[in-house]
Design a protein around this nucleic acid. Structure first.
Length: 269
DNA sequence: AGGGCAACCCGGACGC
DNA sequence: TGCGTCCGGGTTGCCC
């Protein structure tokens, strides 16, 4: 569920907490969440310093001093919490990393994972991802170019990680609403103005979401007031029956490619 | 190429 | 309280 802005928020907050710190202990309660044996995982992660943290699409990368990388994907329902044992949430923890008396808890990892990889392996795994929508190299010209041969629906295209990386079910709807385009519209039916609005909306919605800390409900740590601030600022997602804040028409819920889709039937075309 | 769909996975919400 | 049931949803792979 976490998308680009949620992972970006996590990254920015975690850098201040654990960057440069040493992982003093490791607990793996769910072996399926990792890609090696528990003993091997612990051997290679324990006592390693986290030298840097980076984000790519919906992934978070924890660089270890050894050269290994912990590659995190929260998939559906995954979340993190950082705090002491007393502050720990009443949730099942799949993996925890210790930093002295503080812990980084990985919660809700069902299909989500924390894989231990070499730099080369990480590159391999991430190789098919499309451009980062907020990268300065992702210019309007680049967007128009990669969209040129797209004949699919807008929503389907936006969530395609090979087209653009980091956008998921929620932000695709928010972007379509902001650009005033129907999620089911075919990309190649959009005129120049529509394409320009779409490019602007992709950047604007994601930037706003990052500014307000994304939509994760659970703060990352005790006293974290940033995380989740965008949750109340979403215009259409999970707002079926609410009035559209642009035209007052009630928001419609539908289904597309077996995923939920929300839109305003009047001011999106 | 795009659309549809099954499989993956299991905690937590919900119903009785 | 407790047990059973079902949902969610990003990603991959396969088929049409």
């Amino acid at each position: 569920m976490p998308e680009l802005p949620e992972m970006e928020t996590y990254e920015n907050l975690l850098v201040r907490k654990i960057s440069g710190k040493t992982i003093t202990d490791v607990t793996v309660n769910r072996e399926k969440s990792i890609n090696t044996s528990v003993s091997d995982f612990i051997n290679r992660v324990k006592n390693q310093e986290i030298t840097a943290i980076d984000r790519r699409a919906k992934h978070l990368l924890f660089y270890l001093k050894s050269g290994d990388v912990l590659l995190l994907h929260l998939m559906l329902g995954g979340l993190m919490f950082y705090g002491t044992e007393e502050e720990k949430l009443d949730r099942t923890v799949q993996i925890q990393l210790s930093f002295g008396k503080h812990y980084l808890y990985f919660i809700g990892l069902r299909l989500g994972y924390l894989h231990l990889l070499s730099l080369g392996e990480v590159e391999q795994v991430l190789t098919d991802l499309g451009p980062e929508p907020l990268d300065e190299q992702f210019t309007r010209e680049v967007f128009l170019d990669v969209s040129k041969n797209k004949r699919g629906r807008l929503k389907t295209t936006l969530v395609d990680q090979e087209f653009l990386s980091g956008i998921g079910n929620r932000y695709s709807d928010e972007i379509a609403w902001h650009a005033q385009i129907m999620p089911a519209r075919k990309m190649n039916e959009l005129d120049e103005q529509g394409m320009n609005r779409l490019y602007d909306s992709i950047r604007f919605v994601l930037q706003q979401a990052i500014k307000y800390g994304g939509y994760m409900e659970q703060p990352l740590y005790h006293g974290d007031t940033l995380t989740g601030g965008y949750g109340t600022r979403m215009y259409v997602y999970d707002r079926e029956g609410d009035p559209c804040s642009r035209c007052g028409t009630l928001i419609t819920k539908g289904e597309m490619s077996s995923r939920k889709v929300f839109f305003c039937g009047k001011c999106q075309f």
